[in-house]
């Protein structure tokens, strides 16, 4: 367990970089949106000032943890860390980061509400479908997608380390084929209305936190099976 915490500390050696990037991107997109809607204030009614820029901070986490595997993994193994300690430490870091950034978004959402959308009715954090009934659910709705995005990054990273670029292509193309097959199947069987009902019947909390958590756990476990035999 100590070794796992050592790995977390090694990953946080450059903690300014780890936290500055996502926060910087978040701040930058907020400013861009404020300026954009400030300029367009006459053209966009104040109840339509909704932006999807929030996704950028989630994408940053995807890239960050892709690099955790492609760059920190070879470094850590070079310094005699076991794959298990490295993967467990990375998991701890991913969960902690997700919860922390989720909390930050929760606080920003409150600020957004209190300031009437940053003074111009902008919905940047509290997007209509994201808003939950209570603070705990709201926190998890922001936090869990971080875990899912990070897990996807980790998975691409371990596939790259284990099988190289061709492995990444194979997995990407394979996933696309499976998806296309499913679409074809559903169309053939005429199940689209049922699929649509499934999604509308789910609560937004299930879609934001429930299923992403399942995805994160499944991908996280799959990543472990792959990294066990990966070489730095």
């Amino acid at each position: 367990m100590n070794r796992v915490l050592d790995v977390v500390r090694v990953q946080l050696v450059n903690w300014r970089g780890i936290f500055a990037w996502p926060l910087g991107i978040l701040a930058l997109t907020l400013v861009i949106n404020l300026v954009t809607f400030g300029v367009l204030s006459d053209d966009v009614p104040s109840n339509g000032r909704v932006t999807g820029s929030l996704v950028s901070i989630y994408i940053v986490m995807f890239v960050a943890h892709l690099q955790t595997i492609t760059q920190v993994f070879p470094f850590a193994l070079g310094l005699s860390v076991t794959r298990w300690a490295f993967y467990a430490g990375t998991t701890v870091l991913v969960v902690a980061q997700g919860l922390l950034f989720g909390l930050l978004l929760l606080l920003l959402e409150l600020v957004e509400r209190w300031t009437g959308g940053w003074g111009i009715g902008l919905r940047y954090i509290g997007l209509p479908f994201l808003v939950q009934d209570n603070l705990l659910l709201q926190w998890l709705a922001y936090a869990v997608p971080f875990l899912a995005f990070s897990a996807v990054g980790v998975c691409f990273g371990v596939v790259f380390k284990r099988w190289g670029q061709s492995g990444v292509y194979a997995v990407t193309i394979g996933a696309a084929l499976v998806l296309a097959g499913l679409v074809l199947l559903v169309s053939r069987l005429g199940w689209w209305p049922a699929v649509g009902r499934f999604f509308t019947d789910q609560s937004t909390f299930a879609l934001l936190a429930g299923y992403p958590l399942v995805i994160a756990v499944v991908l996280g476990a799959a990543g472990w099976l792959v990294i066990r035999r990966a070489t730095p």
Binding site: V10, V13, N14, G17, Q67, Q71, V72, P74, F75, G78, L79, P232
Partner: peptide, 16 residues
């Protein structure tokens, strides 16, 4: 030996 691109020399030494 691979070092993370976003590390400085002092980060690598601190990690060790």
């Amino acid at each position: 030996q691979r070092y993370p691109d976003f590390f400085k020399v002092k980060h690598a030494l601190r990690a060790a």
